[in-house]
């Protein structure tokens, strides 16, 4: 086990001691969401501004099934992953032909379409009011209503997701995706089917988003409309960038910083988005690569000075 893994596991165990359980749970859910995006943004170079599409679609679909058909948790998670992947396949299929700003705008526009569908389809989604009353059924005979019990479930799934993501990134597929990011033309010249590879990245990222969406719905017992809104898509992009995109732990750290900061500062100062804005600017101007980069620089500096 590497040191990073030990640190991660220690954080998973210790986090609920220091941070309120609901927030701690949310951090890992958001981290799973971020892991999926990072595969697209950090490893493949596709800046998707529509990840909430997959997150929200899975949350709504599974929320509906949980409410009306009382499906069990394992099935709920599986369906969530499938819905996330399927919606990502659809969006990805449409988007991978485009690049640069066109790609960003297209993911954004499609996100808006899903959003307005959810907004208008009030009989299912509840529209503006959200879809309340999503139950949190037992998992394998265990009651997970207690915040800490649910935290345990989410944390285990997060560790699993992180492990899977590491396998993906280190697999041949992961290397191909990175070569697309670094030089798309060369990857094509090497004989890779670039659009198909991008689509695969999309589907995988969507599956992670779907998993996160289901966990989110069960955490708060509601699927709010903003779960499928572009602001949410933006948040996960920004959280990942703050942490450091293109590194495995970047989105994890980013989600930690993003959620924990916005939750604790918002309780103290009403104008907290201002600080968030300043943080964004600081990261962009002085710390590209995010917290991961800061850590690397600190290590380099220590190394140099002693």
């Amino acid at each position: 086990m590497s040191r990073a893994w030990l640190v991660t596991l220690a954080t998973v165990v210790l986090l609920p001691v220091f941070v309120r359980h609901t927030i701690a749970t949310e951090i890992w859910i958001f981290a799973i969401f971020g892991l999926g995006l990072n595969l697209l943004m950090g490893y493949t170079g596709l800046l998707s501004f529509g990840q909430a599409t997959f997150f929200g679609a899975a949350a709504y679909a599974v929320g509906y099934l949980l409410k009306h058909y009382a499906i069990n948790v394992v099935l709920a998670l599986a369906i969530g992953v499938a819905v996330g992947a399927a919606s990502a396949a659809l969006v990805g299929y449409l988007c991978v032909q485009r690049s640069g700003l066109y790609f960003i705008m297209l993911t954004f526009a499609l996100n808006q379409m899903f959003y307005f569908t959810a907004y208008q389809w009030t009989t299912v989604t509840g529209g503006e009011d959200g879809m309340p009353g999503v139950p949190r059924p037992e998992v394998l005979g265990l009651d997970i209503h207690a915040p800490l019990a649910y935290y345990t479930v989410v944390a285990l799934l997060f560790v699993l997701a992180l492990w899977i993501m590491r396998r993906i990134v280190e697999s041949p597929l992961g290397k191909i995706l990175q070569s697309i990011r670094d030089n798309e033309l060369r990857a094509e010249a090497l004989g890779y089917n670039v659009p198909r590879m991008k689509l695969v990245a999309f589907v995988l990222g969507g599956a992670f988003a779907g998993l996160a969406g289901v966990l989110y719905a069960m955490l708060f017992g509601i699927v709010p409309l903003e779960a499928i809104g572009f602001v949410f898509s933006g948040n996960v992009v920004f959280a990942t960038l703050i942490g450091g995109s293109g590194s495995l732990y970047g989105p994890v750290i980013g989600s930690f910083v993003f959620i924990w900061l916005s939750e604790s500062v918002s309780a103290i100062w009403a104008r907290w988005p201002l600080l968030l804005g300043v943080a964004f600017v600081v990261v962009v101007l002085f710390l590209r690569g995010g917290v991961v980069e800061a850590w690397a620089r600190y290590r380099a500096w220590r190394h140099a000075s002693g």
Partner: peptide, 9 residues
């Protein structure tokens, strides 16, 4: 002013 933030907080 968001259902999600309100419920979770």
């Amino acid at each position: 002013t968001k259902a999600g933030s309100a419920t979770r907080r």
